[in-house]
Design a protein around this nucleic acid. Sequence first.
DNA 1: AAAACCCATCGTATATTTGCGATTAGAGAT
DNA 2: ATCTCTAATCGCAAATATACGATGGGTTTT
Lengths: 101, 101
Amino acid sequence: MKRNLEPIAYQENTEALAKFAKALAHPTRIAILKHLENQSCCFTGDLVDVFPLAQSTISQHLKELKNAGLIQGELKPPKIKYCINRENWNIAKSLFQQFFD
Amino acid sequence: MKRNLEPIAYQENTEALAKFAKALAHPTRIAILKHLENQSCCFTGDLVDVFPLAQSTISQHLKELKNAGLIQGELKPPKIKYCINRENWNIAKSLFQQFFD
DNA sequence: AAAACCCATCGTATATTTGCGATTAGAGAT
DNA sequence: ATCTCTAATCGCAAATATACGATGGGTTTT
């Protein structure tokens, strides 16, 4: 098959934008973020109640959003409070903005 | 495994946004779109020269962008001229805009 | 009619994503 | 120390995405 193992080196902005887009590339994750925008913050359990998905599935989506930097978790025992990471949110926002002109 | 075969019904905007995001979720496709924005239009062959990827791979990426509605192809024998689909581009733009506030 | 050119599509291999149940980890509360 | 509660992580199955070479379809040129 001979795949190209050397990844192509794209511009930094291109990579960053693709990474954010990937995080948004699933309706559940969009919906989670919309929910977070309304509530400003919420717990994992809240989302498990809202979406007809297993707890582990929700947790995995949250992990991806966290890896992309779009959200952050705060320990609020015995729960974890998730909020939008405003700094990275704004970076994503401006990347999409300048991409679309 | 018992996956939930019934797909979750999200809001129309949520689905649409996720679909556009998915199309943008690969750096090559971002780069192709940036290229199209500069040139306003281009041929498949141009892209094959620009990117170190097989012709079939480029073609596949173009197909996905076309399926998402972000580009459109025009027969310009013996080539095919690809341009950004401005109508859907603007839809995507405003969806991202309102999503990020 | 044949050759050349451009690009889509097919077939295939591998990697990644998505989802679930089960288990584990960590922090209070008893 | 034990129990309870929340949420992350593990292990697996299935679906999807990414990439390639090879083939095919449609034009244009010879």
